[in-house]
């Protein structure tokens, strides 16, 4: 009811209008160059000149920068510190802390790596913020992805909030029967059986019902299926995808060529 099924934020923007597959290609069109192109400042430039503007283009800058400060920055920062301190080698010693040495080389290496991770997580975040999961799935199934595969992914996304809702009802029901879930640790452990039992039984029953329900709606039919969602694939999308594939190839070639 109030749990969100996905990260998706519904807005009208150029990024939202792109075909899901184009956006997925864009994700890899950002990640591959960031990791492969030998030029040192590639990930940094990509982040500043492509990823950040894309967040504004998709009108999800608020959500995106919240994710950056809460998740991406701490993770990348942690990675940076660890790598800067623990990667061996490098001549130019900048500082010595007890048994740790900080060299210019390890610092540079860690900085590039942290920004690569930043770019990778950011592009996926932007993708998820601007793409509805079922839109992605219906697009991919129309392109030939087996329906079973799409179902598994969608069901996995949906099962978490459903299980949460179910678990909280069960907890409420058992507490109403005097089950103490709030005092000592031993009590809480004892309280697990009455909570897990109905959750597992209920979920098994649900799986069966779900199977019957989707079967009744022609899930295994081999005929082409129509979809409630109309997904657009404009010439712009096709052009963009080719461009991105070229960029990916170019970064791969540059990697092999210059090393």
């Amino acid at each position: 009811m109030h749990e969100r099924l996905s990260f998706y934020v519904k807005r009208e923007s150029a990024l939202h209008q792109l075909n899901p597959l184009t956006k997925l290609t864009l994700v890899f069109g950002l990640i591959l160059p960031a990791f492969l192109v030998p030029f040192y400042w590639t990930p940094h430039l990509l982040l500043l000149l492509v990823v950040f503007p894309l967040a504004f283009l998709g009108k999800v800058q608020g959500e995106y920068f919240t994710a950056v400060t809460k998740l991406i920055l701490p993770a990348a920062g942690f990675l940076f510190v660890m790598q800067a301190l623990f990667i061996p080698g490098g001549e130019t010693v900048l500082a010595k802390l007890w048994f740790l040495t900080l060299t210019q080389e390890s610092l540079m290496y860690a900085f590039a790596n942290a920004v690569r991770i930043f770019v990778m997580v950011s592009s996926f975040t932007l993708f998820m913020l601007t793409t509805h999961p079922s839109e992605l799935m219906s697009d991919l199934t129309q392109r030939g992805l087996p329906g079973q595969f799409a179902y598994v992914i969608i069901a996995t996304l949906q099962i978490i909030p459903q299980m949460q809702a179910k678990a909280s009802t069960i907890i409420a029901a058992q507490r109403s029967r005097g089950l103490d879930t709030e005092s000592s640790f031993a009590r809480r452990v004892q309280a697990l059986v009455p909570l897990v039992g109905p959750l597992v039984f209920g979920s098994l029953v649900e799986v069966e019902e779900r199977a019957i329900a989707i079967e009744a709606r022609g899930f295994t039919s081999r005929r082409p299926k129509t979809s409630l969602r109309e997904i657009y694939d404009r010439p712009l999308d096709k052009g963009l995808r080719w461009l991105l594939i070229l960029i990916m190839l170019a970064s791969l070639v540059s990697r092999i060529w210059f090393s």
Binding site: R175, G178, P198, G202
Partner: peptide, 23 residues
Amino acid sequence: YSVAKLARRVGYVFQNPDEQLFT
């Protein structure tokens, strides 16, 4: 008072029995 305490005074039968049966 906690729900477990109030259970002494108020019994509550939920809509769906499957959400409480476990024995």
